[in-house]
Design a protein around this nucleic acid. Structure first.
Length: 571
RNA sequence: GUGCCCAUAGCUCAGUUGGAUAGAGCAUCUGCCUUCUAAGCAGACGGUCGUAGGUUCGAGUCCUACUGGGCACGCCA
């Protein structure tokens, strides 16, 4: 909002001063407080193109620049930086607009249809820690895009097909009362696996079931559906506990593309993209050629006629870009799948499944590690169940809340602990740059200082507490914002940056940018709160400061909501 | 062997169109609660941004090589 206003005017001034047509103004927040509030760095590059002295050119740009209403001062510094001190009146007027806007200044952009593929657990097993990242990051991105105005289609591309289901269904079919075992999918899987490995007859039966499943045998099909339903219900319990927006109707599993797989292969053949190699059907693309001239192929059909996940991924691209007509298709998928997805995208382009106007984007993430810097496992070396993680987070938060508020009644402590526990796990996940690995650390995510969920929730609760104490009805608050103190100025600027951050996250799919912003906002508020008395101030400053606090609370709550994190009125 | 990603303060991390003296939190040290939640704030300490070159007015950011780490590479998903 601030950046956009400044950019428009400075670009115009650059043009009037004689800069080349495509000279960007390069506006951004000042890198140091003594430079002012905002700075423009575009003059140097433009002066260079004009082969003129940058400082003298900066002076001409400033002469052409009309910031009368916005800026208290415009200075030229160093080799040609333009430093801008914003006017308190202008900031106050902008904040007045935001205050009246339920969208908090975020413009609505309804231009795109976005399919987002995230979570995608393997239904053969229980959801584990490995599913946390895609689920939480994907959900935050979906929320940001939806709030930005885009049409968002959530696709939970669950693993509900493949040879392992033969073993599971055969086992399900044989045991008299599967309910107790099915209650824990991990137990069920292990027990089927054990029989498969130890009992040759059962292994044969399992393979028979795979064939029957694929050929549509009604009984096996029914058993498969029963198992899938059970597993999906388990997943839904996790989503509900996590506060993730995925619903049963968002499930678009691998099996949804079964009928398309032979068609995709035939289509690739018809388009001349298919080459048989050692009995398998492959696509060789020049762009995957290495220095020695060798091409790594993508196999779309095995020599035994079976299909692979590459095939169903291609079918999914064709469906999403073709039938759904998506403008963007986002894959919130493990970085290890990077090469695979590059191949899928390239083949999809070559086969014309995704037109150039449809963006195919892999937004990758790293691994969650244990304290030993190895992939996170239980002490016994097993998989860490996601539900256990959520329960432990809430339990730890409960101990913390109880220690801090021993007099609070238990029901409220439980509620607060749930929000802090779940919020901490999610915030930890979202506050790191998703591309790197991170170490799962309870103490860090539940820490009260720094860029953590508890700090964010505390800042919010503190504002709400102030309103309770003042006995002020937030909705009835009426008055103008006045920006006087430095801390008010800094807070005002932060508040006005919300739309820019939302836009950046919608574009680049990095939720940690939003976390960083919210942390800076909370930090700016805490400083304001220390330096500027609110309730003890005289009118009209008192109301102005209450309005600043109100706007901070609204943006923090909205920002956390975009991350999928609940807030607390009291903690 | 080929390719992709990563390397920033003692630790964990920001720094994403190349900008001024590289920022937070933790840890260590020093202040501030009879005043709006001290789950807070203020300050100090702490850096050859893996190494060596290059591009340019300017490089943590772009290019090349190297070192160290992670990951992926034709019939699992």
């Amino acid at each position: 909002m601030i950046t956009e206003s400044l950019e428009t005017r400075i670009s115009a001034a650059l043009a009037r001063a004689g800069a080349p047509a495509d000279s960007p103004a390069l506006v951004g927040p000042a890198t140091r407080p003594e430079f002012g509030d905002y700075q423009a760095n575009g003059v140097m590059a433009a002066a260079k193109k004009l082969k003129t002295n940058p400082r003298a050119f900066a002076a001409r740009v400033v002469e052409e620049l009309d910031l009368e209403d916005m800026a208290a001062s415009v200075d030229i510094a160093g080799p040609g930086f333009i430093n801008i001190q914003l006017k308190g009146e202008w900031l106050a007027a902008q904040l007045g607009n935001v205050l009246a806007d339920p969208r908090l200044g975020v413009p609505k952009d309804t231009t795109q249809k976005v399919v987002i593929d995230y979570s995608h657990p393997n239904l053969a097993k229980e959801m584990h820690i490995g599913h946390l990242r895609s689920t939480v990051i994907g959900d935050a991105i979906a929320r940001v895009l939806e709030f930005s105005g885009h049409e968002v289609v959530r696709h939970n591309h669950v693993g509900d097909w493949g040879t392992q289901f033969g073993m599971l269904i055969a086992h399900l079919d044989e045991i008299a009362d599967p309910a107790p075992e099915l209650a824990d999918l991990e137990v069920f899987y292990q027990s089927a696996r054990q029989r498969f490995d130890q009992d040759a007859a059962f292994a044969d039966l399992s393979r028979e079931y795979v064939v029957k499943l694929q050929s549509g045998d009604p009984h096996v099909q029914r058993m498969w559906q029963q198992f899938i339903d059970e597993s999906l219900a388990h997943g839904q319990r996790i989503y509900d506990a996590l506060g993730v927006g995925l619903k049963p109707e968002d499930v678009q599993g691998e099996s949804a593309y079964n009928d398309d797989l032979p068609r995709v292969v035939e289509d690739l053949r018809a388009k001349g993209l298919l080459v048989e190699s050692n009995g398998a059907q492959c696509v060789f693309l020049e762009e995957f050629k290495n220095k020695d001239g060798q091409i790594t192929p993508m196999i779309v059909q095995k020599s035994d006629g079976g299909y692979l996940y590459a095939t169903s991924d291609l079918a999914a691209v064709r469906y999403r870009a073709g039938v759904l007509a998506a403008d963007r298709i986002l894959y919130i998928v493990d970085a290890r799948q990077s090469f695979h997805l590059q191949q899928v995208f390239a083949v999809a382009r070559a086969a014309g499944y995704a037109p150039a106007t449809t963006a195919l984007e892999h937004h990758e993430f790293g691994a969650i590690l244990g304290a030993d810097n190895r992939p996170f496992k239980t002490r016994a070396g097993g998989v860490v169940k996601l539900m256990d993680v959520l329960e432990e987070g809430v339990a730890r938060a409960f101990a913390q809340v109880s220690e801090k508020n021993p007099d609070m009644d238990e029901a409220e402590r439980r509620q607060i602990a749930r929000v802090i526990g779940i919020g901490s796990i999610k915030y930890m996940e979202l506050s790191f740059n998703r591309t790197s690995d991170y170490v799962f650390d309870w103490d860090k995510m539940l820490a009260l200082d720094g860029n953590t969920a508890p700090y964010m929730l505390y800042s919010y609760a503190r504002i709400k507490s102030m309103f309770r104490r003042a006995g002020v009805d937030e909705d009835a608050l009426d008055g103008a914002i006045i920006i006087g103190e430095r801390a008010e100025n800094a807070l005002a600027i932060k508040l006005l940056q919300f739309p820019e951050v939302v836009a950046a996250v919608a574009r680049q799919c990095y939720p940690h940018m939003l976390c960083n912003y919210l942390y800076e906002l909370a930090d700016a508020f805490m400083k304001f709160y220390e330096q500027c008395p609110v309730l003890r101030a005289d009118e009209p400053v008192r109301t102005s400061r209450l309005l600043l606090a109100l706007l901070t609370a609204r943006i923090v709550r909205q920002g956390l909501d975009l991350l999928g994190i609940e807030t607390l009125e009291r903690m």
